[in-house]
């Protein structure tokens, strides 16, 4: 197949010890040491008060990373189609619903219920940004970043449009945590464009491959990559941070990975 190509125009990132893309760039390029700290999720100021009160971790993480990437690309969020990819959705909310449904009082609240949908972040995103554009909301368990990247690239290539990819994962509390041990929140957002512009950081060309995924030299960062599906993006982000044109291989499904060629702009 022909590789799928797009230009990265903006990056947003938030994860343990990585409070934004600028800090992450310094860490991933080796200029600063990596120190893991619990992810701090900002209050989503862009949401109306009622929605802000109701928003869980996945909503806060998506808004923070998505808006960071779009600000870097100097674009209007309302104009962009979006791709949301996550292993699961609001884990805390899911736990409380399951707990209530196993109790004598099964009357879950309306807000709990509408926050339980996998597209909760996409819904709040459209309310916060006013985007009436299409939004693809995906899950592929540990392959969620790769699945989101392919969907976003297909949008860019086929529909000749910019799009924003938001790959975000948050933690379940116990007892679900033991069954799905995602340790903390990690999100990455990429604004992708079909043509080169003054904002372009790099062009990526993506193909399927049988090769094994790249690992990170720093043991703590490698643990992060393996522990949170959205952090499977880290080898790509490291390549951009190092301004290296060396191709990277990203983890995807058990049967196939993604080979990503990077050309700097």
């Amino acid at each position: 197949m022909q590789p799928l190509c797009a230009y990265i125009e903006g990056i947003g990132l938030l994860g343990p010890g990585l409070p934004d893309w600028a800090s992450a760039q310094a860490v991933l390029s080796g200029r600063e040491p990596y120190q893991s700290r619990k992810t701090v999720l900002p209050s989503p100021a862009s949401l109306p008060a009622a929605e802000r009160r109701r928003s869980g971790a996945i909503v806060k993480l998506s808004l923070a990373t998505g808006l960071e990437a779009i600000a870097a690309a100097r674009l209007d969020a309302a104009s962009l189609p979006s791709v949301f990819s996550a292993s699961g959705s609001d884990g805390e909310n899911c736990h409380i619903i399951c707990e209530m449904l196993a109790s004598d009082d099964r009357q879950i609240s309306p807000t709990r219920f509408h926050n339980s949908v996998h597209n909760v972040a996409a819904g709040y995103w459209s309310i916060a940004t006013g985007a009436m554009t299409t939004s693809s909301v995906l899950s592929a368990l540990d392959a969620s970043f790769g699945a989101g990247l392919l969907e976003a690239l297909a949008q860019v290539v086929v529909d000749d449009t910019r799009t924003v990819l938001l790959a975000c994962d948050t933690a379940y509390p116990e007892p679900l945590f033991s069954a799905r041990p995602i340790p903390d929140a990690f999100g990455v957002a990429l604004v992708l464009a079909p043509q080169r512009s003054v904002q372009s950081l790099a062009q990526i060309s993506v193909n399927l491959t049988d090769a094994g995924a790249d690992r990170l030299d720093d043991a703590a960062l490698e643990n992060l990559r393996l522990a949170i599906p959205a952090a499977r993006s880290l080898p790509l982000l490291r390549g951009i941070a190092l301004r290296q044109e060396k191709p990277v291989v990203l983890d995807y499904l058990d049967s196939t990975r993604l080979a990503v060629a990077i050309a700097l702009c």
Partner: peptide, 22 residues
């Protein structure tokens, strides 16, 4: 090859046609 679930509540299995087209 590529595999994914689209989960956007009650539009999910219409939206899969859009992703497959692309």
């Amino acid at each position: 090859g590529p595999a994914v679930v689209v989960s956007s509540a009650c539009s999910s299995s219409a939206k899969v046609f859009a992703s497959a087209r692309r």
